[in-house]
Design a protein around this nucleic acid. Structure first.
Length: 640
DNA sequence: ATAGAGTTGCTCGC
DNA sequence: GCGAGCAACTCTAT
């Protein structure tokens, strides 16, 4: 019996180097249905901003065109229904013998795919699943490494045992047509109310999403790729998706042999834009519009040639191939840790820190609102932390370097890796002391290249909760960008209010004399906000907090954390240490500290930060904070 | 056991 | 521009 195959596209929107697609074609099928299922989980429950939606639709359209170029009868068949319900119906309607797809090790995907495999089994449909998203099969890496890979060395060693990643498979020269596309007796199952009521992307829509309203086949009845209009979204990014664009970028990179062979990630400038200092292939890697193995081998061929001519090439982890190893490391870390990889709670690899604004993953819902307020320590009121978080998200912190990055992230969906470091460090251990999961959620929504494994892993890295632990190394929002952009071109581009600001004060505009502010047409506190806190003061407080949490040594799967006691235990256990530490360090810098007028509204008085903390006295609670706010309204007017 | 390395810190002094 | 010092964590190789 000739095979009749559904090729299910998910993380692999390309035709070159697709091991799963090759496996489907190797069946020599009489019919091949290239299918995309419109998963309501992704439409409503995953955070996906307009820019990433556009990129996905670009990639789908490109695959569809690519298929049609190989065989005019072929194209991407988009079915507007959950795979869990539509695929079993298709098995019958199209008399399917095989279901083929690329392996996905994300936790939601694993669960979904297990269900699909079971349903296919019931229907007598044979399934073929091939890894193709990473250099090596992440599950095999985990097996060889005896657990999740937490260093690139572990990844590379395990990879060595598996042998070099396979060379890329060429784009197929022929593809069978799909068979009969009629859907007799197949009715559309629309998403239930539980999806609409929990729409994570509502704020990005101008009206209710309508992608399901026109039935299984879409408005033209032709299974076409949905549009941004149907999603009720509009994108702002200049970066566009699709296999052709991705291959052109890679080709341009490897044609520049010196750039390719001597690439050193830490030396690339996060302040560079138009063009950026790195390749911008990460969104394509996310959607599969470029194969990471093609990237790997195209680069390695250039490197080998470069070295053959006696010239020195860079090596992992800094080189381009090293970047791919990090990606595989995070994938294998997630594959090994499992469902809880993206959170602290229940995650044995992630260190517990009593962050402000704990994420939604807490043992008791009340814990999310819980705040500690010991004066002179890293603790602040949760209301204040909430304000910091909102300002960070919206790019209104008053630190131009941080704000410019957040503006670029929101509008363009891509920022340089080191820019991600800067804002992630600032939000967590290097400023706000806010839960990394809160920041990761913002990245999840706005990044074109959002990959749960890499995003969560990098947030763990930057917050010093896993992968990396040197919490003394904190990025300065002033000194760091000056290394590559003394003039502040980047800041001037993304924060136009500051475009004529004096170079001397571009990263700390609150220090600029008022006459110069007027001359630059930007009054700090009016046209651009004052800094939301004294960064050096916050940095020191964060280090004290990290030190205490590291001494406690809790991790996400420890019983105290799972039971929800860790925060209280830690507070009790380290209250004395923290305060004595504060005693010893709070005075030296006091004389250099600027007056309170230089900063945005501060619920705690400036006096309190200069004075050594006295045990058990003068705690700032919600009530006293609001009392102060009421009593001193002028403090609230700093940014007017 | 101990030393050294680890993708990318900052400040200061030369 | 470079190196030392800051004060410090974790894993790996020996």
């Amino acid at each position: 019996m000739p095979a009749r195959v559904i090729y299910w596209f998910r993380t692999d929107l390309r035709l070159h180097d697709s091991p799963a697609l090759k496996a489907a074609l190797d069946l020599d099928p009489e019919a091949l249905y290239p299918v995309w299922t419109w998963d309501p989980h992704y439409v409503y429950h995953a955070k996906v901003g307009p820019n990433r939606w556009q990129f996905l639709l670009d990639c789908q359209s490109a695959v569809s065109e690519g298929l049609s170029q190989i065989n005019p009868e072929s194209r991407l068949i988009v079915l507007r229904e959950s795979p869990l319900t539509i695929l079993p119906k298709l098995f019958k309607a199209w008399r399917i013998s095989h279901l083929v797809f690329e392996k996905d090790t994300d936790s939601y995907a694993r669960k979904r795919d297990d269900e699909i495999l079971a349903k296919a089994g019931e229907a007598g449909v044979e399934c073929i699943v091939k890894y193709g998203r990473t250099l090596w099969d992440s599950d095999e890496i985990v097996g060889i490494n005896n657990g999740p890979t937490m260093t690139t060395m572990q990844l590379q060693k395990a990879g060595q045992k598996l042998g070099p990643p396979p060379r890329p498979i060429p784009t197929p020269s022929s593809i069978p047509p799909p068979g009969d596309l009629s859907l007799k007796d197949v009715a559309q199952d629309q998403p239930g109310p539980e999806y609409f009521s929990a729409d994570q992307n509502q704020s990005n829509r101008t009206a209710e999403d309508s992608t399901y309203h026109s039935g299984l086949r879409g408005p033209e009845g032709d299974f076409s790729v949905p549009t941004m209009e149907e999603l009720r979204m509009s994108a702002t990014t200049p970066h566009r998706g699709g296999e052709k664009i991705a291959l052109e970028i890679l080709d341009r990179i490897v044609r520049d042999k010196e750039y390719t062979a001597t690439f050193s990630k830490p030396d690339t400038a996060p302040t560079a834009f138009e063009p950026a200092s790195t390749c911008l292939l990460s969104p394509h890697m996310h959607f599969g519009s470029i194969s990471c193995r093609k990237f790997y081998w195209d680069v390695l061929d250039v490197v080998n040639e470069w070295e053959k001519s006696g010239k020195k090439a860079t090596e992992p982890p800094c080189s381009l191939t090293g970047q791919l190893f990090f990606r595989d490391m995070y994938f294998a870390a997630q594959a090994g840790v499992g469902t809880y990889f993206g959170q602290t709670l229940h995650n044995p690899k992630v260190r517990y820190i009593p962050w402000h604004l704990p994420s939604k993953h807490q043992p008791n819902p009340d814990d999310i609102l819980k705040s500690l307020s010991i004066k002179g320590t890293y603790h602040v009121d949760s209301k204040e932390a909430e304000e910091w978080f909102i300002k960070w998200r919206e790019g209104r912190t008053g630190f131009p370097w941080i704000d410019a990055i957040m503006v670029q992230l929101k509008t363009e969906g891509w920022i340089h890796h080191l820019a991600r470091h800067a804002v992630a460090c600032f939000l967590t251990r290097g400023g706000c002391y806010i839960d990394w999961e809160r920041g990761a959620e913002v990245f999840e929504e706005w990044l074109l290249d959002h990959e749960i494994s890499c995003n969560a892993g990098n947030w763990q890295w930057l917050s010093c909760t896993a992968f990396f632990s040197q919490y003394m190394r904190i990025y300065s929002p002033i000194a760091f960008p000056q290394k590559t952009d003394k003039e502040g071109k980047y800041v001037r581009h993304y924060i136009p209010q500051l475009k004529d600001f004096p170079e001397k004060y571009i990263y700390e505009p609150w220090k600029c004399p008022i006459a110069d502010q007027r001359a630059a047409g930007c009054i700090i506190g009016k046209d651009y906000p004052k800094p939301m806190f004294d960064w050096k003061e916050r940095k020191e407080a964060c280090i004290r907090g990290m030190k205490a949490a590291f001494e406690a040594g809790y991790h996400g799967s420890d019983v105290e954390v799972v039971k929800g006691n860790a925060r209280d235990v830690l507070q009790e256990k380290f209250k004395d240490n923290i305060e004595s530490f504060a005693d010893a360090t709070s005075n030296p810098g006091a004389s250099e500290r600027k007056g309170k007028d230089d900063f945005e509204s501060r619920p705690t008085t400036s006096k309190s930060s200069k004075m050594p903390a006295k045990r058990g006295s003068g705690q700032v609670t919600l009530d006293t904070m609001f009392a102060r706010k009421k009593a001193k309204p002028e403090d609230e007017c700093n940014d007017i």
